[in-house]
Simulated assay, not measured.
Amino acid sequence: METAQLAIEYTLLCKDRKLSIEILVKKIESLGLSCSKIEHQAKGICIDLSEEIGFYLFLFDVGNYPYNSWETTFLTEDFTFERTLQFRMDKGYFDIEKRYGVMLRILFDLTEELNEEAILVWCGGEEMCFFREDKPVLLNNESGIWSRACFQDVIADRAVCYR
């Protein structure tokens, strides 16, 4: 599948392999989107939602240490992860707020349902939030990103705190 050259990426680094292809597809379809364009790749899948919502989703298993280690500001030790969920967004998509709302809904719902420990990282390396097992989501708002209306709508009824 071909992606746009100018893209914004958000990557969820998942500690465990709780998130499966089946669970991801079920969540996407529960939001009224179609998963009819799935491409199987060597270590995962790509779901093309570019026409519907302006992004591609990649779910991949990662390699071993040190390739699965992230030096995080949320913890004193490095965060190791086994799976990544990446959102590659086309900058040209017209309804930016809707797109971000869908992305965040997928992320927050899945991590909550799976009780998954994970870190959301923006393509510039900025850590946006830390999903913790049985604890409120820890948000990094240094850049003010969580103050945006489309982000506030998703976190309004969720257990979150700011670091």
Rank of each mutant, 00 (worst) to 15 (best):
Q5M: 14
Q5H: 10
L6P: 03
L13V: 01
C14F: 03
C14M: 10
K15I: 02
D16E: 14
R17Q: 14
L19E: 02
S20T: 15
L24H: 09
V25K: 08
V25T: 07
K27D: 06
I28Y: 02
I28T: 02
S30M: 07
S30G: 00
C35M: 03
I38C: 01
C46S: 11
I47Q: 00
F55D: 03
F58V: 02
D61C: 12
G63E: 12
P66R: 10
P66H: 13
Y67L: 15
Y67R: 11
N68R: 08
S69F: 06
T72Q: 08
T72G: 09
L75I: 13
T76N: 13
T76I: 14
L85D: 00
F87T: 00
Y93G: 02
R99A: 06
R99H: 03
Y100M: 07
R105P: 02
E112W: 13
E116L: 10
E116S: 09
E117G: 09
I119G: 01
W122D: 12
G125N: 10
E126D: 15
D134P: 06
V137N: 05
V137G: 03
V137I: 15
W146L: 08
R148C: 00
A149W: 10
Q152W: 07
Q152K: 13
V154W: 04
I155Y: 01
I155H: 04
C161N: 13
